[in-house]
Amino acid sequence: MTTANFHPSDDILRDFAQGNVTTGMSVALSAHIELCSSCRTRSSELESESIMEWLKLEGDSEPDFSGMIDTITALPQLTTEPQINSAPVNSDDLAVSEIHMLDRSFTLPRVLARAASNGLKWNKLAGGINQAQVQIDNETQCEFLYMTPGSQVPVHRHQGNEVTLVLDGAFEDQFGHYGPSDFLVRNKRDQHQPSTEEGCLCFAVLDSPLTFTSGLARLFNPINNYRFRRATSQRF
């Protein structure tokens, strides 16, 4: 296991510890934390700090809740841990805990195996990119991306934030070279063109669609916008 060189910032880890990020982003962070011991340590420290802050909260204008007490104490108590992960999974034989691509295979972090538990459907995109979307929430677009060896993503810019977690292989852009467990955040100011020699499997979370900024790839913009709207279809 290679040690990550790129990590989420303290601000992101603190928001994560407080439950203050989207589900899609939480999945990416949880997966990185499973792979990265220094972020595991850091996030538990930030969680402790968050608890200390929380304990200091004292308001006096809140509603009076004491009417709830009798209802609550009338309930039976549990004696054993309830079954976790009781959320329905379509079928066990669709569950994905490993991803195989060409001659590679990769075991997914727990939370990503869970995210992929309804099965992955891969689509081929321009430039040697394979994409499998997973529906995690209505606010982000989450996908596994596999860049075949020697492939290059057209230059693009993000309308919002894009988080990429490298799972296997490596890729690079003008800002650096990224390997397994690396966690990258690109915001709307960053225009970049990822490429890979050896091939690369990533998990990516976008909070708004990509905009391609060069040549023919711009033709993809309407499609990306459509994909994003579909992936994040608001169903409130």
């Binding site: 589900t23 949880s30 992960n85 959320a87 329905p88 939370v111 995210a115 995690i136 929430d137 209505n138």
Partner: peptide, 22 residues
Amino acid sequence: CFDMLRKKKRQPQTISADDIWP
């Protein structure tokens, strides 16, 4: 709170708080 909000927003139920924070 995390699970309550997911329900409220009608998100897919694949991921729960127990998956995110083991």
